[in-house]
């Protein structure tokens, strides 16, 4: 059950959008396809939907081979980045569209539409037209419209990409709750790692048409499989492996060293071990402080919590010692 993707490849002319993708989306989970633009994440989603045909490979949805099944017969819900609401129909008519196409009895259509209006918390706005709604409201209507036909899977293409930061944050939490209520297998595309971490059960990190890693948000962040994942998900300092601040207990010592900014420690000169460095820039980010340091030929960024930062009393151009609690090594540089 769920979605099974086997050896799917897709070309657009000379451009290879998907390269032999294999992926298993478990029934009832919420999965994020995360990657930079051009990584193939949207193409993969549209291929699952049936809006694109794969050149090779097969796609199974809930045990049925849907590779060559028309999008209309797949019974999927699709949410577009720019809503794609029917402009000439009211909110209610938009939600009811799929049901009416399926010749659902009017009474049932009405019941289901009202129920969904409640679910998206727009009870009073059923008779409005899309252009009378805010972006966040429109996207909720688009979701309700997709859910109305009780789809086997829900597919969302950068659903919050066109919204401002505050609305985006609200809608993420809302989508999370909605998924707990509705529990339909869902796949959404995003280029925002924070969004993927916050919403998804599993994250699929994609790059150049390939899957780099599949895992829970924690696995992706704490145990990145490739240098690409490490640098795409969260900030990272990349240093040659011979640089001195790498902890003694680190096992591998070849290739490049990847260190998260919050894994760096700063101590005053003379207070124990560490590599000498000069403070070049201090940025206050509210709950943490970003310190840029110069280590000989290299620059590193450290993130300190307020508790770590305040006692240090750092000033610009001050000489300090830096050491790292952790480091990861990858033979090739991202």
């Amino acid at each position: 059950m769920g979605i099974i993707i086997q050896q799917v490849s897709k070309n657009f002319g000379d451009f290879q959008a998907l390269r032999e993708i294999n992926l298993d989306v478990k029934d009832g989970t919420l999965v994020a396809l995360l990657g930079p633009s051009g990584s193939g994440k949207s193409t993969l989603l549209r291929t699952i939907a049936g809006l694109e045909q794969p050149d090779r490979g097969s796609i199974w949805i809930n045990g049925q081979d849907t590779t060559y099944l028309d999008v209309r017969d797949r019974n999927i819900g699709f949410v577009f980045q720019h809503y794609a609401l029917f402009k000439h129909l009211t909110v209610r008519q938009n939600i009811a569209f799929g049901l009416e196409i399926r010749k659902t009895p009017p009474k049932l259509v009405k019941e289901k539409t009202e129920e969904l209006l409640g679910l998206i918390q727009l009870e009073g706005l059923g008779n409005r037209y899309p252009n009378q709604l805010s972006g966040g409201q429109r996207q909720r209507v688009a979701l309700a419209r997709a859910l109305a036909v009780s789809p086997q899977v829900l597919l969302l293409d950068e659903p919050f990409g066109a919204l401002d930061a505050k609305v985006r944050k609200e809608l993420r939490a809302w989508l999370r709750r909605l998924h707990q209520e509705v529990h339909v297998t869902s796949v959404f595309v995003t280029h925002d790692q924070e969004e993927a971490m916050e919403v998804a059960d599993y994250i699929v990190v994609m790059n150049e048409g390939k899957i780099e890693q599949v895992g829970t948000p924690t696995e992706i962040y704490d145990h990145p499989a490739t240098p690409f994942v490490m640098s795409f998900v969260g900030e990272v300092n990349v240093l040659p492996s011979h640089v001195d601040l790498i902890p003694r207990n680190a096992k591998v010592r070849e290739g490049a060293a990847f260190i998260r900014p919050h894994e760096l420690e700063i101590v005053p000169l003379g207070a124990g071990e560490g590599t000498p460095a000069i403070v070049r820039h201090i940025t206050h980010l509210g709950w943490e402080t970003q310190v840029e340091l110069e280590l000989g030929d290299f620059e590193v960024t450290a993130h300190l919590s307020r508790e770590q930062f305040l006692p240090l009393n750092l000033t610009l151009n001050q000489k300090v010692l830096v050491r790292s609690r952790n480091a990861r090594f990858f033979s090739q540089v991202a």
Binding site: V71, R72, N75, A84, F86, F97, G98, I101, R145
Partner: peptide, 16 residues
């Protein structure tokens, strides 16, 4: 074409 695409995902036939 996105409204037409949305209608297709909702199961509408070409003439619909």
């Amino acid at each position: 074409s996105d409204q037409e695409e949305a209608a297709r995902t909702l199961g509408a036939k070409d003439w619909q």
